[in-house]
Simulated scan of single mutants.
Amino acid sequence: MGNGLCRDRVVIVTGAGRGIGRAHALAFADAGARVVVNDVGVALDGSRTGEGPAADVVAEIADRGGTALASTHDVADFDAAQALVDDTVERFGGLDVLVNNAGVVRDRMLVNLGADEWDAVMRVHLRGHFATLRHAGAYWRAESKAGRTPDARVINTSSGAGLLGSVGQANYSAAKAGIAGLTVVAAAELARYGVTVNAIAPSARTRMTEDVFADMMARPDDGFDAMAPENVSPLAVWLGSAESADVTGRVFEVEGGKVSVAQSWRHGPEVDKGARWDPAELGPVVTDLLAKAPAPEPVYGVGG
């Protein structure tokens, strides 16, 4: 099976029934991992479909000689996320890697965005990342305190929309930005327990991106499909392996054959008066600060 980079590691992949999550599950299995394929089975907008994509991916893994378990737990349900972790530990004897990938979209311009559309996206993306991470983190903390220090990994899924913003996706962008923030906090808090936490911001052809990036979705004639979801998974597998122990609190952008490290918010140029500012003083101060700072990256969807 594959290169054995994650041989015998136990991996949960959420939202693994289709797209990038499915590619992750297959890639981890090919690398020797035992995989829990989690997918609640819903349409793109989060409504239930009654389909069984998780079981289909498990069958694919079995056909390739791998070991996998299907899960239909709703990761945004706090108790169900606990059950997902518990079931994994009971079935495979532990947990080494959590890949948070599940998501939905409800795209709409901000002035037309409904509260229910905001809440639905926040629930699956941000709460879904939090709930699984919280319970997996508690498991690893208990293992560490019992003298069995984990060599554990979390790979979260942010987005270029979360890092830079995307017109028509205020809810999705905010949720993905929240995931980037959650990643760096979790990396700081869980390091003492033998856990690294990183995030990837993938760009690939999935149900969630086919409308946003329609002009990039044409399959090429040169044999390399730069938008194939399978291009994202090698980095996820490496981040889930023992080799990545020194990498944590980072966000990586992945598209086709490109991998880059995203630059986070940083302290920039400053002016210290040493006393409270008068509002009338701040115009030229702000102008000077902005002149010294690099220009921000453009928001996706803004014409140049």
Results as ranks from 00 to 15, higher is better:
residue 34 R to H: 12
residue 166 S to F: 03
residue 54 A to N: 01
residue 85 V to R: 02
residue 271 V to I: 15
residue 80 A to F: 00
residue 65 G to Q: 07
residue 60 E to G: 06
residue 21 G to M: 03
residue 192 R to W: 07
residue 266 R to T: 14
residue 102 A to M: 07
residue 3 N to S: 14
residue 134 R to K: 15
residue 13 V to K: 01
residue 59 A to E: 13
residue 154 V to F: 10
residue 223 G to K: 08
residue 29 A to G: 04
residue 19 G to C: 03
residue 303 G to Q: 14
residue 143 E to C: 14
residue 176 K to M: 09
residue 95 L to N: 03
residue 34 R to M: 13
residue 37 V to N: 09
residue 128 G to W: 04
residue 1 M to E: 11
residue 237 V to Q: 02
residue 280 A to Y: 06
residue 302 V to T: 13
residue 281 E to D: 15
residue 145 K to Q: 15
residue 11 V to H: 01
residue 55 A to R: 15
residue 184 V to M: 06
residue 174 A to N: 06
residue 200 I to L: 13
residue 93 G to E: 08
residue 285 V to D: 03
residue 298 P to W: 01
residue 33 A to P: 02
residue 292 K to R: 15
residue 281 E to P: 00
residue 197 V to C: 07
residue 167 V to Q: 08
residue 168 G to K: 01
residue 291 A to S: 14
residue 297 E to F: 08
residue 142 A to G: 10
residue 251 V to L: 07
residue 9 R to W: 08
residue 224 F to M: 10
residue 138 A to D: 11
residue 212 V to K: 04
residue 287 T to Y: 09
residue 177 A to D: 08
residue 44 L to E: 09
residue 286 V to G: 05
residue 231 N to M: 07
residue 210 E to V: 14
residue 86 D to L: 04
residue 191 A to Q: 10
residue 94 G to Y: 04
residue 184 V to W: 02
residue 41 G to H: 00
residue 212 V to N: 04
residue 250 R to M: 12
residue 244 S to V: 09
residue 119 D to H: 08
residue 151 D to K: 10
residue 160 G to N: 14
residue 261 V to K: 02
residue 31 A to N: 01
residue 55 A to C: 12
residue 7 R to N: 12
residue 109 M to E: 13
residue 104 V to F: 03
residue 43 A to L: 11
residue 208 M to W: 00
residue 216 M to N: 12
residue 212 V to R: 05
residue 33 A to S: 12
residue 232 V to Q: 08
residue 138 A to P: 00
residue 197 V to E: 07
residue 254 V to E: 07
residue 123 R to W: 01
residue 197 V to A: 03
residue 122 M to S: 09
residue 62 A to H: 11
residue 188 A to M: 12
residue 218 A to S: 13
residue 108 R to T: 10
residue 122 M to L: 15
residue 166 S to E: 14
residue 139 Y to H: 14
residue 59 A to V: 05
residue 48 R to Q: 03
residue 254 V to D: 08
residue 241 S to A: 07
residue 62 A to E: 15
residue 267 H to F: 14
residue 91 R to P: 01
residue 96 D to W: 05
residue 145 K to F: 05
residue 7 R to D: 11
residue 40 V to S: 00
residue 240 G to M: 02
residue 176 K to P: 01
residue 171 N to D: 11
residue 47 S to R: 01
residue 80 A to H: 04
residue 214 A to F: 08
residue 242 A to V: 05
residue 72 T to Y: 00
residue 70 A to C: 05
residue 33 A to Q: 05
residue 48 R to K: 10
residue 220 P to C: 10
residue 70 A to T: 09
residue 13 V to E: 02
residue 47 S to V: 00
residue 219 R to K: 15
residue 132 T to N: 11
residue 81 A to M: 01
residue 72 T to C: 00
residue 112 N to S: 14
residue 232 V to C: 06
residue 250 R to Y: 05
residue 259 V to T: 11
residue 54 A to Q: 02
residue 140 W to A: 04
residue 152 A to N: 06
residue 169 Q to T: 05
residue 67 T to S: 15
residue 39 D to I: 01
residue 6 C to H: 01
residue 230 E to I: 03
residue 231 N to C: 09
residue 276 R to M: 13
residue 171 N to F: 05
residue 73 H to T: 02
residue 265 W to V: 15
residue 294 P to F: 06
residue 216 M to E: 15
residue 62 A to L: 07
residue 239 L to F: 06
residue 233 S to K: 04
residue 26 L to E: 09
residue 115 A to G: 11
residue 112 N to Q: 12
residue 153 R to W: 08
